[in-house]
Each structure stands twice: as structure tokens, then as C-alpha cells.
Amino acid sequence: MNTVRLAKLALLHPIQFFEDIQERAKWHYAFVMIGLAILAHYLSLNFSGFLFQTREPYQISILIEALWIVVPWLTWSVTNWGVSTIMDGEGKFKQIFVGSAFTLMPYIALSVPVALVSNLLAKSEASMYNGLELFIFVWVIFLILLQVKIIHDFTFGKMLWITVLTIIGMFIIWFIGLLLYGLINQSIQFLIGIYKEINYRF
């Protein structure tokens, strides 16, 4: 019940919400929100009209779709916390972690209705559908920026600067992640190779 009230607050009074969340952040809120976001994403993929969905149901994997939400959210939280701690931000990791999950609230609330509306639209009215999607996107971006500003108590200029740094940091994390994946893969292959070689010898 508390989560629902907070979610409503995030949608209708975001400034008050981000001030409240600094005191009332609990870990499980974040997981509930992300779970809902994944659910909403999956439902919207399934409900959108034939004209606006180019993929077949069998081409959609819930695991991959979930990763598209979870991975950016986790890297954002970690990077934003790291960057803002260095740059005199006030936010704690818990606040960023939970607050970021709540910034997806517009998507959770609106993506399924938009998907349902897309069933009533023809191809010539695609601009309406795209406009609605853009509206959700802009709202989410707005909440993210507001979160950075309020949780860390930054000025407007510094808020933008930290956001840019965070995005750069996210790319660095992804790059290193891919690099590590590649290297570990190689070394595991190497070990397997050595094992096979020795096996053949003796």
C-alpha cells in the first residue's frame, strides 16, 4: 500500500516525492517498481496492434526484454552514485537506487494503455502513437533529471553536468563489462584447450 501511495506521489507531485523518498526509501520498493516496469514492458509488447509491432511473439524473449530495463537501471544507479559522491552530491546509494526505479513510473502507468490504443489506429495515424511514446519518454527523462537535482541538492547546471558524466560512466562500465566478458571467455577457452591437449597426450 505504501508503494502505491509513493508511486502516485511520483507521478503527481514529483518534487515532493523525491524529498520524501530520501527519508522513506526501502530496498524492496525498488524491486517492486522494476518488476512492474518489466511486466508493463512485456504486456505492452503483447498488446500493441499488428501495425505497430514488427516482431512476432516468438521473437520476443522476456529475459532479454527484462535485461533492457534492469541493466541500464543498475549501471545508472551505480555510476550516478559514484560520480555524485566524488562531486559533492548528498544522495546515498539507497536513495538513488530506489529513486531511479520510481522514475520509470510514467512508463509503468502509460505504456499498456498506449499499446491498447495502438489497436485502434491505422498506419496513417502513426504520428499519434509516436507522439504518445515520445510523451512517456520525455516524462521519464524529466523525472530522472529531477531526481539528480533533488536527491543530491544540485543547482541546475551541475545537475546537467553530473547527468552527462553519469552517462559517460555508464558507457565505460558497459565497455569494461564487454571487455571482461571477452577476456574471461578467452581464458576459459584457453584452459579448456590446455586440458584437452594434455588429455590427448597422455
Binding site: F50, L51, L120, A122, K123, S124
Partner: peptide, 18 residues
């Protein structure tokens, strides 16, 4: 049209149906 994945034709038929 949906079975043929003919989206333009589907859209035209859909408009009429609506």
C-alpha cells in the same frame, strides 16, 4: 492481410472496418 504480413493493406482494411 495479417497472415500475409501486408501492413499497408491491413491498415486500409482496418480504416474501413473502423
Amino acid at each position: 492481410f495479417e497472415m500475409a504480413k501486408a501492413r499497408d493493406d491491413y491498415s486500409a482494411a482496418f480504416l474501413e472496418y473502423r
